[in-house]
């Protein structure tokens, strides 16, 4: 669980943060704060599917479910089983 949180956080920082001074945590809102726009959710979804060998249906990949690293972990765990 902790390992997964760190992997996802690392990906989000690498993928979306342009300014190195910006700090984000497991609870930082990503979509509602504008750090990740709805366009860019695609790569996040694809990353999760490839990394954890899962398939997330589009209707489950909502902005709410993707809004924080913590909520993403909950979503991924649902599909890992």
């Amino acid at each position: 669980m902790e390992e997964m949180k760190d992997e996802i956080l690392e990906y989000v920082i690498d993928e979306y943060i342009e300014d190195e001074d910006d700090e984000i945590t497991y609870d930082t809102p990503l979509i509602s704060s504008g750090i990740v726009d709805s366009f860019s959710m695609v790569s996040l979804k694809r990353f999760l599917e490839a990394k954890y060998q899962i398939s997330i249906p589009d209707e489950k990949a909502s902005p709410e479910a993707f809004d924080t690293v913590n909520s993403i972990v909950v979503l991924v765990k649902e599909f890992i089983g």
Partner: peptide, 12 residues
């Protein structure tokens, strides 16, 4: 891009 059905992704 929004009008097109293809998947969309971005690079920095």
């Amino acid at each position: 891009i929004r009008l097109c059905g293809a998947m969309h992704d971005t690079f920095k």
